[in-house]
Amino acid sequence: MKILQYILIVFLMLFSPKEILAQKDSIALQREARKLLRQGNDLYNKKKFTDASVAYQKSLANNTKYDKASYNLGNAFYENNNFKEAVPQYELTAETAKDKFTKAEAYHNIGNAMMEQKQYQPAVDAYKNSLRNNPNDDETRYNLAVAQSLLEKENQDNKDDRNKDNKDNKDKDQKDKDDKKDGDDKDKNKDKKDEKNEKDKDGKGDDEKDKNKDPKKDEKKEQEKPKPQKGKMSPEQVKQLLESLNNEEKKTQKKMNAQKAKGEKVKQEKDW
């Protein structure tokens, strides 16, 4: 009797009216989610991708863990070229899917969406994850090879660009150095020239004057200089000077006559 009472109490606790109502609501939401999923699929097949994405989003609002609705929403975004928005939906499916084939398809589509955005490294990673879940998928293997080739080319182009930038920077630095050197040389030459001109101003002017000086012209100028004039004598002084000269002349004449007489020999007759 006590055992039956215990079982009854447990049954009532497990299946209380609130729990029963919650289960009913959950079942109703799941049904509504499946209904909206089917509507979305019909619109998708009619290529009405925008309307289909709206239906899938409503389906997920009723059941957030509805993997099919997430995956199909990603496909609708992809077909509308909304590749960036498609990736999170595929990632959600890849995380929650229970079978490997569904995971492989989700990762494959992630790779395709990344390729459309020219994000080659994430695309390579996604294709590899897809092959880990389904190694026999030749389409994924082909896409992986294409992504790896484009990634290698991108890396090479980036390397070439970096090398070109480094070369341009080196050439620019060298040009700046050369320009600076030329500027310094010009400044030095200018300083030397200014110094030379300054010296020429100080010394060359006088030297140039001396060099260009005409000796004949200087001689002529020297000749043209006024000579000292003799002092003028009065008539009395002239008379005294003439008398003095006459007296001197008489004395000189007398002296010469005396010497002449003294020097003359006397002629003698021979005594035979």
Rank of each mutant, 00 (worst) to 15 (best):
E105H: 08
P235I: 12
Q237Y: 11
A22I: 01
L241K: 13
K24C: 04
L4I: 08
L144Q: 01
N72G: 02
E219F: 14
D51Q: 03
K196W: 04
K181F: 10
A104W: 01
L43S: 06
E116Y: 12
K209L: 00
A97W: 01
D178T: 08
E154W: 02
D51W: 02
L14D: 15
L131T: 03
D178Y: 08
V266C: 09
K58G: 04
K199F: 08
K48R: 06
K181Q: 11
K251S: 15
Q240S: 10
K209D: 00
D171A: 00
D125C: 09
D137W: 01
L37H: 10
L144P: 00
A261L: 06
A86Q: 05
T64F: 14
Q156G: 07
G111T: 01
K204I: 07
N133K: 11
N166D: 12
G111C: 01
K262R: 14
K170R: 02
E95T: 14
K254G: 08
D161S: 14
D25S: 07
D191C: 07
N112H: 10
K46L: 14
L21F: 12
N80W: 13
K217L: 07
V10I: 14
Y71N: 06
D182G: 05
A94T: 08
M13S: 15
E139W: 08
K201I: 12
Y120A: 03
D67L: 11
I7W: 07
K225S: 06
Q119L: 09
D99Q: 01
E91D: 15
T96L: 13
E224D: 12
D138W: 04
P88G: 04
E85G: 00
T140Y: 05
K220R: 12
D184N: 09
V146A: 07
L43K: 03
D138V: 05
E139R: 09
Y66K: 04
L37S: 11
E152N: 02
T140F: 04
L151F: 03
K239P: 03
N247F: 15
E19N: 02
R34G: 10
K170I: 04
P235V: 11
Q174P: 03
V54M: 14
G231L: 15
D173T: 07
S70K: 06
P122R: 02
K220I: 06
S53V: 01
I9F: 14
K98F: 04
Y6L: 14
L8A: 13
